[in-house]
Simulated assay, not measured.
Amino acid sequence: MKKTVLVSLIGAALMVGPVSSYAANEAVGLNGILSEGRLYAPLRATGEYFGAKINWNQKSKTASLTQDGETFNATVGDGVLLKDGTVYVQFKALSNFFYPNDHISWNKSTMTGTSEHMTVVARPLTDQQALKITSNAISTKKEWIEYLSHKEESDYRERSYVDWKNSTTFLLIYSYYWQDGSYLMDQTINVVMTKKGNTWNLTSIKSFNEVMEPH
């Protein structure tokens, strides 16, 4: 069975970090984006994984990958996107550069493109964009106001997670807890956002609370 290795996309798009080694039975897993019906993969993360040399020309807005004497140039424009500091290239073009004989398939229900060596899961928004849109949409909701009120509590911890249902609907889960005396207070907010036209709208918001007694 083909194994998928997830590559972290944290950091600037063209900051060259450690290069992951590649094994023949592994496929790199990447967080991509959908734009006008096309699937795009992050250039830097893809290049690092396959051991390519990466360059960026700020003047021409061109990123390049070089491997085994061959160079792939990607100038921001048609077929190349620059989103939140990350350069994205059409999945098919990147896949063909590294493995021109790979067959590419698309699963519409999971928004996933696959080849023998790459798996790209499409995201219409980055996690940061989804968080910003959602926090603005719920800024006046009592659940969000309560959430913000606990940030100064003792031993406060939080995390968030974006769960895409399809290309126009995502669930954003805010989970946090804090210490209240000898009790641990745990709260989760589930927010569903749906896109209509070019606008993301709040569909529902639900809050769940739990009090955990000391052991």
Rank of each mutant, 00 (worst) to 15 (best):
S139L: 09
D78R: 05
T194I: 14
G113K: 01
D127A: 12
Y99W: 14
L65P: 03
G11N: 06
E213D: 05
I104A: 09
T119S: 13
L125V: 00
L14C: 08
S160A: 11
K92Q: 11
L43H: 03
A23M: 09
T114D: 07
E158A: 13
L82P: 00
V5L: 11
G37A: 08
T86R: 10
T112Y: 04
V211H: 02
E26K: 05
M15E: 12
V5A: 04
K195L: 07
K83G: 01
Y177N: 15
D78F: 03
F72N: 03
H117L: 09
Y161G: 05
F98W: 06
T62R: 06
I145E: 12
K141L: 09
G197I: 03
R38E: 11
Y88I: 00
E153A: 15
V19S: 12
T169G: 02
E26C: 07
K53G: 12
N57S: 12
M1V: 05
N198S: 14
S21C: 07
E143G: 02
I138E: 01
L131T: 04
L6E: 10
V121K: 10
I104W: 06
S149K: 08
Y183T: 02
Y177F: 10
G79C: 03
Y88C: 03
A130H: 04
T112L: 00
L148F: 06
L34K: 05
E36K: 13
V80M: 02
H117F: 03
M118E: 00
K132G: 05
N96F: 05
K59W: 04
L6T: 10
T4N: 04
L171W: 03
A74H: 01
G69N: 09
S135L: 08
I145L: 15
Q187C: 09
E70M: 04
N198L: 07
Q90T: 13
M193S: 02
Y161L: 15
V28I: 15
D186C: 04
W200F: 12
W200P: 02
G79D: 14
A41V: 10
A23G: 08
M193L: 12
T112K: 08
E143I: 01
A130D: 05
E26A: 05
G113Y: 08
M118P: 02
D163Y: 13
A23S: 11
G79F: 06
Q58S: 14
G47R: 03
D155M: 11
K83M: 11
F97C: 11
T71F: 05
V19N: 11
L172V: 03
N136C: 06
A45V: 06
T62I: 08
T62H: 06
E26Y: 11
Y161F: 13
T194V: 15
S64Q: 10
L171A: 01
S115D: 00
E152P: 01
H150V: 07
W56S: 05
T169K: 12
A27G: 06
